[in-house]
Design a protein around this nucleic acid. Structure first.
Lengths: 167, 167
DNA sequence: GCATGAAATTTCAAGCTTGAATAATTTCCG
DNA sequence: CGGAAATTATTCAAGCTTGAAATTTCATGC
């Protein structure tokens, strides 16, 4: 009768653990969305631009020599077609330049114009302050712990072969 | 000449702190996007649905009696017009029902159909497991610390009068 | 009753995002 | 060389998202 051996019981997640996981995730999501909303709003009001544009410019700022479309989309981890549209608008704004790649007629190199660089430098400076207004109040040991925990999350399940991590 | 008193120096954030804030934020954003991407992909592949739809259904699941469109959009913290489109699609899927509000011809109550409830229950169960796969490996004290830290972030700057917090 | 403003919702234009399909080019190999 | 496969980028349809404008209805005060 009592021969119930419950084979998978050892590795089974308790309902309490599942709930806690969910709770943490929802809070993390909420906090992230909150910060993102602040950044979006500030970008819109102070610089009349958007977060995706900002992200693209940030990537191009870092690679002065320019990036191929495919490099850009994989750096930002978004789809190819996505970047096409954003770059299009940045080009017509005069912030980004397209140059053909020597020796490969398929590829295009995109890079910031000087105007784009100046623009982004101003935005990045403001952005740093916005973020620091939110995160700057955390004690150093807390942010250190947060960094460590977030690292763990990223590597929690090696199911997805993450491409190159940017430094 | 040397009468520079630098009035704001006392409260000035050190460049090291700003950098650390930025580092934490970028990592938090990255981790959140990673988890979100997993959820989106799983919802798409296993249930042929989207995260926004899931979010709407989650809210409606919690309020069995239904919600007004305005209540729904403020619960999800998205724009009014946004919800309209999502509900439209959920209605034509047969997952959501619209009922007029007695005594107010402007308002509409939206609620899950039985089919919608069953659908969501299955999705929610799977969702819990996905999340637990990622967060379940964290030690209890770490998740506790994470929860506390995230709370601090939400309330770091009381610049925005947050509406009602959902429990 | 009636005007005036508030509230609830939809509509709209613009932009973001994805995954799939397409097109052009390059690379690999036989 | 010449064709199959891989790479690069764009196009496309569908859906999400926003803020603003428009619409309808309600509430208030006169």
């Amino acid at each position: 009768m009592s021969s119930k051996t419950s084979p998978s019981a050892a590795r089974k997640a308790g309902p309490e653990q599942v709930k806690q996981s969910l709770r943490v995730w929802l809070k993390m999501l909420k906090a992230t969305k909150h910060v993102e909303a602040v950044v979006r709003e500030n970008l819109r009001v102070e610089f009349d631009t958007t977060l995706p544009r900002f992200d693209v410019m940030a990537a191009l700022y870092r690679f002065e020599e320019g990036l191929k479309m495919s490099e850009l989309s994989s750096a930002l981890r978004v789809s190819n077609g996505n970047v096409t549209g954003i770059i299009e608008r940045l080009v017509s704004d005069g912030s980004v330049l397209r140059v053909p790649v020597a020796g490969d007629k398929r590829a295009m190199l995109v890079r910031l114009t000087q105007r784009g660089r100046d623009e982004f430098a101003r935005m990045a400076a403001a952005h740093e302050l916005w973020i620091n207004e939110i995160f700057g109040s955390l004690p150093v040991d807390v942010t250190a712990g947060l960094l460590a925990t977030l690292d763990t999350i990223e590597h929690a399940q090696g199911l997805y072969s993450e491409g190159e991590h940017d430094a």
